[in-house]
Structures are given as C-alpha cells and as structure tokens.
Write a protein that binds this DNA or RNA. Structure first.
Length: 503
RNA sequence: UCCCCGAUAGCUCAAUCGGUAGAGCGAGCGGCUGUUAACCGCUAGGUCGUAGGUUCGAAUCCUACUCGGGGAGCCA
C-alpha cells in the first residue's frame, strides 16, 4: 500500500478531496456484492470507508470482505464530503493494510447483559456509549483542575495510607503496612486543612476508598474525590465556591460535549438550567418540607404516574411480543423483541420503586429532628427543585466532629450537602471547620476519639487558627448526573464494587 | 445483615399444563453497487448454574448451595 499523509478522523474536514491514510480499528462492516462499507474508528471519531470492486482493486476488495470486527487496519483513500455518512465525511478507499486480524470479538453490535460487559470492561471501552462517557469524564476532570488552578488554588495531595481510623472505622479498608495496621484513606480533608494554613487556598484530588457493603447503582468502593479547602472562609463563602464550581463544570461539558450528551439521551435543557443562584435550605426547612403536603403530594402523584406507566408498558409488551412472533421483516421482529425486553426491565424497575413509595412516605412524614436525611428524603428535596439544592445546618450529632458549631444555635453545625436536581441526590458534602481548640477537643471527647492520634491536627488550632472550610465532590456521581447514567459503574474506567475487582 | 428477581448455544433471549431443546446475533460458506444494529439462503454450535429429591417422564415442581442483578440500611 502506498504511503500518504496520515491523519485523524476528527481532522478530515481539512483534507477534503485529498488522499490520506487513517489508522484505526474496524467498528463494523457491511459487504455487498461489489461495494463494501467499513466503519473505522481511530480514537478521535468514526469514518465510513467505501470500497468499490473494480479490476484494479479485486485483491483489496477480497481482503475487505474477510475483515472482522475490531481488526486493526490502515486505510488509504480520498476524503470527500458525504451527507449520507455519519461524520459528514467519508473515504473512497483505495488501499488497506491489515495490521492485526481480530477474530471472534466478544462484544457484538447487538445488546449484551451487564455481567458480560463488566467482565469485558477492557473491551467495552471501545463501544460508542462508553467512549462518549470516558471523554466527558476526561473533560470534567480537566475542568475540575482548571477551575481551582485558575482561581489560584494550590494542589496539595493527601496520603492514601492513613493511620488513624477516625469516625466510621467499619467502612475503611485495612492494609498491612510492614506489620502495622493502616487504612486506605476515605478523605484527605484533615491533611488538607494543614496545607490550607500554609497556602490559603488548596485542593487535593485523588482516589478514595469506602468499605461499605452496599450493592446499589450509587456505590463504588473506590472512587475519585476532589476536595478544596479555604482559609478565612465562612460557610457561605464555601458554598459560593461550590456553586460556581458546579456551574463551571456544567457549562464546560455543555460547551464541549453537547453532541455526546444528546447521544447519551441526556436532556440538555436540564443542564442548561444549572445556573446560580442555587436553592439554599436549612435542615429545619428541609424537615418542614418532608412533613408538608408538598412531599406527600409528590409521592402520591409519583405513585399514580408510575402505576399508569406500568399499565401502558403492559400494553406495549403485548404489542411488541405480537410483532416479534408474527410475520414481517426480521429486523422489525428483532426490534420488537428488544423493545419488549426493555419494557419488561422498565416495568420491573417501576414495580420495585412503587413498592418503596409507601415506605418513603412514612419515612418523610415521621422524620424526626436530629436524624440524618436518608436517601429517599434527599430524593424528595431534590425532586422538588430544578436546580441544585444546598441543605445546611444539620444537627451536630449526625455530622463529623470537625464541623463548626453554629454560634447562634449550638445544636447544629455549619455544614452543607449539595443535592443534584431531579432526584439525583448528593454530589457534594462540605462545611466550615471548627477553629476553636476547646470546642474541637470537647467534640472529640464526645465521639471517643483518641486525642493522641490527632495531636498534629490540633496543632492547627494552637498556632494561628482561623475560620476555614471546604467541601468534597464525588467525580463519578457528578459524571453520572451530568450524563444521565443509570448506574455509577459506567462513570469510572475500572469500577470497584463489593465483590468485584476484575479486570 | 435483610428482602425481591434471575441463571438454557460464544452473546441476547424463547420453550403453553411436567412430554423429543428453539430463534436472532456472532462464526463459516454462497448471493447482492449506497449500506446505517444492512439484507437473503445454507452450515456448524447444548452436561438447560451445581448437588439432591418428587415423577413413568424435569429446562419446567421441591430443598440446599454457588454465582449474578436490583433494593433496604449506610454513604460521595
């Protein structure tokens, strides 16, 4: 094969009419008697390469006919604008070099089950949907760094091996550290507070580990968290930063990935609504909402809507199955069968949700001041709003020892949880930190924390203590929310969940 | 820790009341010059998750176990 200019698929518009070479992998092929279409992907996009059989190209054509999915190839041809083709450009191919012929690629263009896909995560990346998600993840992470770097935050990463267990030791992973017991960190915050007193504005960004025995669509045992910490900041200062931060991520993703979001089925209008001011509620107000008719009505309507939807689905399923079993085009039958499966899945999901609604109503109605908001309570609050909601000033007892006691109401602390809208739930948790030595020590005693393990932390209150605060944002939950993913496992390259660590 | 659902061809799923194991995709072969999950014809492909039990007969019923999915609690 002749060598020509090498280029990438996302650069093709610059080479209209020219002969170039693309290097990539075969995504799909459609071969007819004398014409063959090869969808090539090269990491930057997809391009349809068209091979027409002619006397000069007989050998090439025969080779193309045998191409299998995910073979790696270099294809040379003339670039031309083509409305019928996916990216707007296609290639009239004249030559092909098969770098490596693949055979029996496991992931076909037809649907697969989640267990199978997870076992093939290393290959699943190549599929279109996963490809979009990973690109958006990369942008989100870039924007996270950019936001803080542009605002003069200093990156100070915290250790992953952490000595003291602190609160919630049962959710930490134990590690043997040369014969001593240490834990995988579940936050870098305490370390960051120290760095904050040196640099003023700092952040850390890395993986974090939770040994929670949760098997749900919202949980990972290993996930990424970014945590900023700011000196001389009040709770409201910290919330301002958090709100600007979320807006900047939403804007950036909308700017750079509108097409991908649409392909993922995300409602763009929902994301465009992510504008300041966000809603701020105190815990007391949130509790009032839970007790109010508004919550009751929401859930009652929910019950009605879901019940109606189930009836609709039942009808659809019958129709789909009739089409699938009856005569007609095979592809129509295939589609109907696939639709029937999807409808069944949606139905069983709705049934599960309906089953939980009475329980959620009860939880909300009987919610007692002093306990933490549960998942269903958060869902109610966030569903009542079309932009993120910050719930502030939780009771002291349900929050961590380092959170700043409200001087006007000592029963609560100056903290906030940011809930993503439309029922998605918590993506940020943050607070002002207790800067007063005596109050902090008293609180540690209440929690039975061994003071000797925290002497270094208390030093921060001994030498030039100032009001300060920060928050932590879960990258995967944020990405899942932005992309409208049903399950968090798609938001991280190699998900680690309870009982799952392959590949 | 608790509750619900599932396991049949490489993949996704069928199999009516307990009566000889089926289809599509993928693979192989053949056909087709504009396909978009292409299409059409043919071929190969099975220890019905494991171990017991009921029965003349079990993919189907019962029990236990294993693995997977979802949810509760807990959490970002």
């Amino acid at each position: 094969m002749e060598t020509t200019t090498k280029t990438k698929i996302n650069q093709l518009s610059e080479y209209d009419g020219q002969t170039v070479t693309l290097s990539g992998w075969v995504y799909n092929t459609r071969v007819s008697g004398k014409i063959a279409f090869v969808i090539l992907r090269d990491g930057t996009g997809m391009c349809q390469c068209v091979f027409e059989k002619s006397d000069e190209l007989t050998e090439v054509f025969d080779e193309v006919k045998k191409l299998s999915q995910e073979s790696s190839v270099e294809i040379t041809g003339i670039v031309n604008k083509e409305e019928r083709s996916v990216g707007g450009y296609e290639m009239k191919a004249t030559g092909i070099n098969v770098v490596h012929g693949s055979s029996d690629y496991p992931i076909t263009p037809k649907p697969h089950g989640i267990e199978f896909l997870m076992k093939h995560r290393h290959l699943w990346f190549r599929s279109k949907r996963q490809w979009h998600i990973m690109r958006i993840r990369s942008t989100v992470i870039d924007q996270i760094r950019r936001f803080f770097n542009d605002d003069s935050f200093i990156l100070v990463d915290s250790p992953i091996f952490a000595p003291a267990a602190g609160e919630g030791a049962q959710t930490l992973f134990k590690v043997d550290y040369f014969g001593e017991e240490v834990y995988l960190a579940q936050t870098g915050q305490l370390y960051l507070e120290a760095a904050c007193m040196a640099h003023g504005k700092v952040y850390c960004f890395g993986p974090t580990f939770r040994a929670e025995k949760s098997k749900t669509r919202r949980h990972l045992t290993e996930f990424w968290m970014v945590e900023p910490e700011i000196a001389y900041a009040s709770l409201s200062d910290v919330m301002d930063v958090a709100e600007n931060f979320i807006c900047s991520i939403a804007e950036r993703v909308l700017r750079d990935h509108r097409e991908e979001l649409i392909e993922l089925g995300r409602d763009i209008a929902d994301l465009e609504a992510i504008k300041r001011p966000f809603v701020r509620l105190t815990y007391d107000q949130a509790v009032d909402i839970l007790h109010s008719d508004k919550s009751k009505t929401l859930l009652e309507n929910d019950l009605k809507e879901k019940t109606a939807r189930i009836e609709e689905l039942a009808k659809n399923i019958v129709e789909f199955e009739e089409i699938a079993k009856g005569g007609g085009k095979q592809w129509k039958k295939d589609k109907a069968a696939a639709d029937a499966i999807a409808a069944r899945e949606e139905r069983s999901e709705l049934e599960e949700q309906i089953k939980n609604i009475p329980h959620h109503m009860e939880l909300a109605a009987n919610f007692e001041w002093g306990s933490d908001l549960g998942g269903s309570d958060e869902t109610i609050i966030s569903r009542l709003h079309d932009r993120p909601v910050c719930v502030t000033h939780y009771p002291r007892g349900v929050k961590a020892f380092y959170m700043r006691q409200d001087r006007k109401n000592e029963k609560v602390v100056e903290c906030f949880d940011m809930l993503a809208p439309q029922g998605f739930g918590e993506i940020i948790g943050g607070s002002a930190r207790e800067e007063d030595y005596d109050r902090l020590v008293a609180r540690m005693k209440q929690e039975h924390l061994p003071q000797e393990d925290y002497e270094w932390y208390l030093d921060l209150r001994r030498y030039g203590s100032v009001p300060h605060g920060g928050f932590g944002l879960g990258v995967e939950r944020t990405l899942a929310w932005l992309c409208g993913l049903k399950h968090i496992r798609e938001a991280i390259p190699y998900p680690r969940m309870m009982g799952k660590f392959y590949p």
